[in-house]
Amino acid sequence: MASVMGLQAILEVYEPDPANLLDILHDVQEADERNHLSREALSDVAEYVGLPASSVISSATFYSMFSLVPRGKHIIRICESPPCQLVGAESLLDILVETLGVDVGETTQDGAFTLETSSCLGVCGVAPAMMIDEELYGNLTKERLAEILEAVRSADDGS
């Protein structure tokens, strides 16, 4: 999780107003090593914006971009919208499940990837598409998928 100092620094960017809650949660999650919102962080955010912790947890659990369980270093979000489905996203998901050895919502044992789906990434012109963290990949094929995963892994090993 974000260190205590780190969390304070994030909070202080914002006015202590419930209206800033989603933006704060985005920033807190982004700063977290495991890509998630810990219970402690949620309590601290609640205290800062002046809401009961239950309200903050209620909001955080509603939105699919937030996770209350620790995730992998990289989040893979494969698009399963009809335009992507039409050009083969379903079989790509099967390939990802098989290659990574995890189901949707799970994290690989080495902690490298969490596999998620997205309702629509809004890049339908290059369907089928997926995002890994902030990076977008389109016109996916089985071969490209393997290459991309390999490239992400080797970039990590090199760093």
């Binding site: 009809p82 309702s119 629509c120 809004g122 012109g125």
Partner: peptide, 11 residues
Amino acid sequence: DEGEPGTFKDR
């Protein structure tokens, strides 16, 4: 909040 599948005009 352009979430309708198959839509990216606003983007």
